[in-house]
């Protein structure tokens, strides 16, 4: 493995972000819109309920933490898609860059996007709704770790699907986020899901991260069992993502699918 080549992958994607204003939407505009949407919804519901607990912090914290997963996933996914959009895949495949180095570079660049998006979310949430991300405390770190790894795993698996089924499957890069959002209990506990769907939600590591987040927002200590389940599950998901995409890449090379992208 070459750290230098990984750094060059990061640089390659930094150039693209710098020159593509619409890419800033992902890390600037959509986070802003999400905070406005979920913050306003929480405020409205709080005004019309007799409950002593406002739901607003749960919604805002939920969407903020979901953006960690979202940004991690699309950084890896669109990083790869950038090569297919510019028909550059064959150029990359004929350099010494290994699959792992390329994915590591896009994932590392994703961390920058996560930080930028979190900054946007934090400033907006505080400015509009007086919500402080620091209210979560250091608990944010293990929760963010789980969500980042889940995002990378989903992004890597999506690359495998695009390699196998072609660019038509790229809709999954965005679509998989909505699936994860619905099943991970971003805004609600798993028991609020229809009974038949709850087992699916419980096997997702991201669900345990959001369970932990809600516990912290309720004023409880960080639940170690949820974090442990989340971390273990996230690493299992990452390994599964790698294994799946390695298999798809083998199929891609065996069937000569590279000609689809060049």
């Amino acid at each position: 493995m070459s750290w230098h080549r990984i750094r060059v992958v990061v640089r390659r994607h930094a150039y693209v972000l710098w020159r593509a204003p619409h890419r800033w939407f992902d890390i600037g505009f959509w986070p802003l819109m999400d905070i406005i949407l979920w913050g306003s919804l929480g405020t409205y519901v709080a005004r019309n309920t007799t409950s002593a607990t406002s739901g607003t912090p749960y919604l805002i914290a939920g969407i903020m933490m979901f953006h960690i997963l979202f940004q991690s996933q699309i950084a890896v996914g669109t990083g790869f898609l950038e090569e297919t959009w510019s028909r550059n895949l064959l150029n990359v495949l004929t350099t010494p860059v290994t699959e792992f180095e390329y994915l590591a570079g896009t994932a590392a660049f994703g961390l920058f996007k996560v930080l930028f998006a979190l900054a946007t979310l934090s400033i907006t949430a505080f400015g509009f709704f007086r919500f402080e991300l620091s209210s979560i405390g250091w608990s944010i770190l293990p929760i963010a770790l789980i969500l980042t790894i889940v995002g990378w795993s989903a992004g890597i698996a999506n690359i495998g699907i695009v390699l196998r089924f072609g660019q038509g499957a790229e809709i999954l890069i965005w679509g998989s986020n909505f699936i994860l959002m619905a099943f991970s209990g971003v805004f609600n506990p798993v028991d609020a899901l229809p009974g038949a769907l709850q087992p699916i939600a419980r096997i997702l590591p991201s669900t345990h991260a959001f369970n932990a987040l809600r516990a912290v927002l309720d004023g409880n200590p960080l639940p170690g069992n949820e974090i442990a389940l989340g971390v273990i599950g996230a690493f299992v998901m990452l390994l599964a993502g790698f294994a799946f995409t390695a298999w798809m890449l083998h199929v891609f090379r065996r069937r000569g699918f590279v000609t689809r992208f060049s």
Partner: peptide
């Protein structure tokens, strides 16, 4: 490797794109 039918990365200047490939080639 080069092919007449292969484009180069979009949104990168020629110098930047070549720098990226040079980096990948070590």
């Amino acid at each position: 490797f080069a092919a007449g039918y292969l484009p180069l990365p979009d949104r990168l200047k020629v110098r930047e794109a070549l720098g990226v490939f040079a980096g990948w080639y070590g």
